[in-house]
Nucleic acid binder design. Structure first.
Lengths: 192, 192
DNA sequence: TAGTCCATGTAAGATGTTACATGATTCA
DNA sequence: TGAATCATGTAACATCTTACATGGACTA
């Protein structure tokens, strides 16, 4: 048997995250995606409406009763209790090396929705874990550079450096973010 | 009619790029992906072998005659002239806003393979174009932050800032990369 | 009431994932 | 010669893209 428990794509959880704030219709969600960096996770109707259907079938969202059902207009959805649990479970998932390699953006997306549902302590734990796993990957990359660098073309080398610096950027960001969380969100002075 | 001309995925072009350097078997390619940041574009056999099949059907690659065909062992592939043209066409594609939003990594991948095939002038043109389109997107993001920022939770705000800074990082990188290209790859002193 | 936009969806195809299958090669 | 591992692949499924379909609501 090859039954795969549906774990949800980034798009699924981006939708869940928005619906956790308040009910939205598919159209609203789509507009919200288009107008924000969430567009990164796709904003085409051919992705969003099927995703909403999936979430309904999983029992994670439901139409808001009494609203819009009349014609065929806006149909707002809201999270169900299982949907909330699924979102929570996702938010509490430890960052893994595989995610860092394949899809850092999904990790940042996860963090983005955390203040809706998690404690500051949990968010800090996430950031520390993120720093650990990203830091380890940066070390890997530096070692790779040492052995493979001399054989790379100039543009390859430069592209590789772009990658490493991107990850170093996440490390710096996570450090600052942790500080901001602890000061309650106020920007504190720091050396440049 | 809905005939879609196959344009190739990032994985396709990553494979083409490697094969452009020298012939490799699928197994070699897979190992190369696993051991390098190219793993970002997937390194599973279930992605790589079907991709190689696609490239063969498109006439972009072909088995190296007389090598490995004997048993069922390693089967090295090399680029065909149309394959080379496809790679060139991809390398010369202008960076577009949609790519910046959906998949910057593909843009960096493109740059990574450029010194194999393009002139320094063309690479510089690419970097300038990249800076223009990324710069414009950063402006967009800054404006979005102004209107949406006050309504965002703290972690959402921080995540957003991570995104913006990532793009600013690409701007700085592109500037430095251009300089390196012009000095022939040597690192030059710069203010920090 | 005709036209436009609103809002939701579907169809076909491409690509990726996970997990398994299979025959050759190598070497203990 | 048996076990590992090399090397290539396939099957089932999930998800996304592009393009089109559809019906209601609003407005000139």
């Amino acid at each position: 048997m090859r039954t795969v428990t549906p774990r949800g794509s980034s798009l699924d959880f981006a939708l869940l995250g928005l619906l956790h704030q308040e009910p939205h219709s598919g159209y609203d969600l789509r507009k919200a995606f288009t107008a924000s960096p969430l567009a990164h996770f796709s904003d085409s109707p051919g992705a969003i409406y099927p995703a909403l259907l999936r979430l309904r079938k999983r029992g994670w969202i439901e139409p808001v009763p009494g609203e819009g059902v009349s014609g065929r207009g806006r149909q707002p959805f809201r999270l169900t209790p299982p949907g909330r649990r699924a979102l929570l479970g996702w938010l509490r998932t430890e960052p893994a090396r595989s995610e860092v390699v394949a899809d850092v953006d999904a990790l940042i997306l996860r963090f983005a929705f955390m203040s809706q549902a998690l404690s500051v302590a949990e968010m800090v734990r996430f950031l520390r874990s993120l720093r650990a796993v990203v830091g380890a990957y940066v070390v890997e990359l530096e070692q790779f550079l040492k052995t493979a660098g001399p054989h790379m073309g100039l543009s390859g080398l430069l592209a590789f450096e772009s990658g490493i610096e991107g990850f170093r950027g996440y490390l710096r960001w996570a450090k600052r973010a942790e500080k901001r969380l602890r000061t309650g969100g106020h920007v504190t002075r720091r050396g440049s």
